[in-house]
Amino acid sequence: MIIADQKPVAEIKGFIEGKKKVLIAGCGTCVTVCLAGGETEVKNVASALRIAFKNDGKDVEILEDTVERQCDDEFVEPLLARVKNEGFDAVVTLACGVGCNFLSTRIGPVQVFPGVNTSFLGSNEAQGDYLELCAGCGECILHLTGGICPMARCSKQIMNGPCGGTSDGKCEISQDIDCGWYLIVKRMQELDILGQYDEIQAARDWSKGTHGGPRRLTKETAAMAAEDDAAKES
């Protein structure tokens, strides 16, 4: 899932200085699971902001809302309606960057601020412990590397590792980071496919990653016919 980390409240407060009525909007999916932006975190951030503005002697109304997902129209519509009807002059979203983008392109002349730093695609290793495992690069090569990703787990994203900086299974960047290629080799040994390791891998086609510009994916077989979609909407 998407892992995010809450921004310091002081930073969030800076975004909304001068505003009168602000909605703190949570998301019930990834950021809830990674304890960064669900209803509970909305309560905490909203409370901290209320205390902060009160101490400044400023009258800022901070309200709360959380929807299932901030990346689907059906879920955000009530949120957008609320912002409009109740006259909010800013929204702080605790959803990942997707949510912030999604709201910003639909909300009209109200600014949406990010309340979290969207960090990576990762796993939940233990309560409160998250690890990046996928770089979202657009073309999976995990079949070549024993299921462990050199794009996400090698600091240098090299295709034919490890580099000379590997030592005792750790990366030269930090003793806290495993060497991705060390993990790959171990795993290949375990699977008895170490032969694959000898093959030199070709350079990546980065156009399928962010280098090819913003990506969009349409699953034709699932999409609705344009006229059906229009009929449904009317």
Binding site: P8, V9, A10, K13, N44, V45, S47, A48, L49, I51, A52, N55
Partner: peptide, 12 residues
Amino acid sequence: KEAGGFLEAIGV
């Protein structure tokens, strides 16, 4: 500790 972190961040 978490509540303390919020309070620290807002200057309380």
